[in-house]
Design a protein around this nucleic acid. Structure first.
Lengths: 138, 138
DNA sequence: ATATGTTAGGTTAATGCTAACTAATTAAAG
DNA sequence: CTTTAATTAGTTAGCATTAACCTAACATAT
């Protein structure tokens, strides 16, 4: 019982650190009032790479004007930009800026920062023990 | 280098499990389209215990009508209810239903579920090793 | 008289839509 | 092989809905 409480405590601490790392990433990007929806869009764009407006509309099941509006917002926020297709003059690809990528990947980067911090503190053998134990959880 | 990647993998897995637990909690409550703001309000109410409308307005720095409106929503969602003060007939306390508490504490409960799952799988000695190692992270 | 909560009647911003448009490309017909 | 017609990509204009706020005015209780 007490073991569980202790474990709860240490995990709570780890999650707190991870959240701080997340917060840092958003601060660095100078973005404070982004919405959950917008982060979702950025993730979708990031995952699919070069997407067209029509493509993003289909994936997110929205109309094309909705996508235009969203991308215009992202351009203003310096999170995305348009890249004209060389083959077809009607097509524009949606590309993420570094800032846009940071936000899209903020979860990943926060976890990476946490891992960095863990590996700074632990010995090699401890790292291995940790991995061995935690691999058991499915 | 490889150790870090492995550790990233196992933590990613743990977080995924925790997210599933979170999702389960919201599903059990039958609530799908709650907003981030609303969860924040529920957390504030939960943390402060019996709060009045004026009290919640002060804490959240909103006007009283805003609070009335929000609580009305919560009542419809079966997350909160009013409790009339016995001493002062003007005062109503804001109380959370079980559902409201579940949502306010969803993070905690999800973490608890995760710990439960961990302790199901690990031996006592492994639990202790895990705690000892993770306590080093500050 | 004053404090508590409610009602009425707003605002702003996010997120979505349809219809109509321009520009570019492709297909068809002469 | 042009020239025209149809199609496709993205944009603009204009509108609807909802969340989350507000002030002013109110009823009720102290």
């Amino acid at each position: 019982m007490e073991r569980k409480e202790n474990l709860y405590g240490v995990f709570e601490n780890l999650l707190k650190i991870k959240n701080e790392c997340s917060y840092e990433i958003f601060s660095e990007c100078g973005i404070s009032d982004i919405t959950v929806k917008q982060i979702e869009y950025l993730k979708t764009i990031d995952e699919h790479g070069k997407l067209t407006f029509t493509g993003l509309a289909q994936i997110t099941k929205n109309s094309k004007p909705t996508i235009t509006e969203m991308i215009n917002k992202f351009v203003k926020m310096e999170c995305a930009y348009r890249e004209k297709s060389a083959e077809d003059g009607r097509i524009y690809y949606i590309c993420l800026t570094e800032k846009g990528q940071m936000i899209a990947r903020s979860e990943k980067y926060a976890l990476m920062k946490l891992i960095e911090r863990i590996s700074d503190v632990l010995e090699a053998t401890e790292m291995e023990t940790l991995i061995r134990i935690l691999k058991k959880i499915k």
